[in-house]
Design a protein around this nucleic acid. Structure first.
Lengths: 233, 233
DNA sequence: GATCCATGTTAGCGACGATAACAGGTCATG
DNA sequence: CATGACCTGTTATCGTCGCTAACATGGATC
């Protein structure tokens, strides 16, 4: 196998296994069976190596995404792309941090490609008459929100890496950039129960009703939370 | 001045002036007129020093924010908080990256405080009847989107650090978590507990929640009528 | 006055990113 | 065939980093 490939592979494995998200060129050289200065001859400096690692790992993800994209429903493609983005971040946290966090001098090529891919999907959405704003701006909005959610899930483990938050933000953002779905008849009135339950819950939190025992208050709060979450769960 | 304060101050200045967002304990010691091991005696390790720096810088920002918050319009407060958050990130990129990027072992105290502050604003929004979802979830959504936009502005300078993108995403997110504005001549009367309970009770009568057993529904209805009758039992 | 603890200093360890200087091999050109 | 340019890899080393052990000092406590 190529020296370059062996180095990138070793660096990738070390990076994925690294607890602090960093690697050392010496460690990479040892694992790849190569002396350290070879890395500097091939990649220039450590940033070059990391860029190559990102391009390698994210390139595979991009290839898979590019191969599966052409559905007849561009909005569904957009939703799937968002979810895959989030999943990739959770599965490769160190790699993802290198891509969507300031610090790396030269932004890897893959990030630009991902942006381009998203823009092409949004172009198709626009051609289907479903996009309310220009695709460039929409791409920036989607990327910002999606990477924000992904980084938040990585940074704060108390969110228990739930994907719910990701889909929730996704739907909010899509509702903000898409035109209303052309489904037949009357547009479905948003259910008022969750909002009413939510308002009452907030009021009760600020002024606990004295006519209720603590246990009653707790049970009532639980029920209101359930109602605020909507009819499905 | 205190040794500790001098060190934090020197570290802050070095961090703000650092091109790669990193500092060295030796440089901090030299600038503060203090030997290097003093830093380790006072802060434990480098992460401790950086946490202290973040708590110092962001603490001032939080204090200013906390002092100015209590407006009568919580939604306006929410908008202003978003914009201040974005502005802080653009003005202190290195500090901001330490806070909202995975890597620091112990998340600084300030981040939790900021989250708490946002949640209290959202509680007020909910009590005004303007929040469509529960405040905890809303806080996670707002933080994710806001930090996502801020980090995107920092990471990709081709967005020319425009604040337009920030306000655009802000309005999309707010539209997704707020109830439609009660536009019209009447001032937005904040609903009281009896009224909110009455509204919810009526809604539940017209659409009984399937996730509740008949007995639960009945007890909930009783409680809501009790709340609708006012504080006197 | 002896003791102890908090604080500060000196010196140094091991690991890091990066580079200079050199060695071998390939290949086109004379 | 011989020679020099060139690509590739090695050895050795530099300066810096985070961090710590060992020692020194000063003031409070009993």
């Amino acid at each position: 196998m190529d020296h370059r490939s062996r180095i990138v592979l070793a660096a990738t494995e070390l990076l994925e296994a690294s607890p602090n998200g960093d690697i050392s060129t010496r460690g990479v050289g040892e694992k790849a069976g190569v002396q350290q200065p070879v890395i500097y001859r091939l990649f220039g400096d450590k940033d070059g190596l990391l860029s190559a690692v990102v391009d390698h790992g994210f390139g595979e993800y991009l290839a898979a995404k590019r191969a599966a994209v052409p559905t007849s429903d561009p909005v569904a493609d957009l939703r799937r792309g968002w979810e895959e983005h989030t999943r990739f971040a959770l599965e490769h946290p160190n790699l993802y941090r290198l891509m969507y966090t300031p610090g790396l001098a030269s932004a890897p090529r893959s990030v630009g490609e991902a942006h381009e891919l998203l823009r092409s999907v949004l172009e198709r959405v626009a051609r289907a008459g479903r996009l309310a704003i220009e695709p460039d701006r929409a791409a920036e909005i989607v990327i910002s929100a999606n990477s924000g959610v992904a980084l938040a899930l990585l940074t704060r483990p108390e969110l228990h890496r739930s994907v719910e938050l990701s889909t929730h933000v996704r739907e909010i953002v899509l509702a903000g950039i898409l035109t209303p779905e052309p489904d037949g008849g009357t547009p479905p009135e948003p259910p008022a129960v969750p909002q009413a339950a939510n308002t009452l819950a907030a009021l009760l939190r600020s002024a606990p009703p004295e006519s209720f025992s603590p246990a009653e208050r707790e049970l009532l709060a639980e029920w209101l939370t359930r109602l605020a979450h909507g009819p499905k769960p």
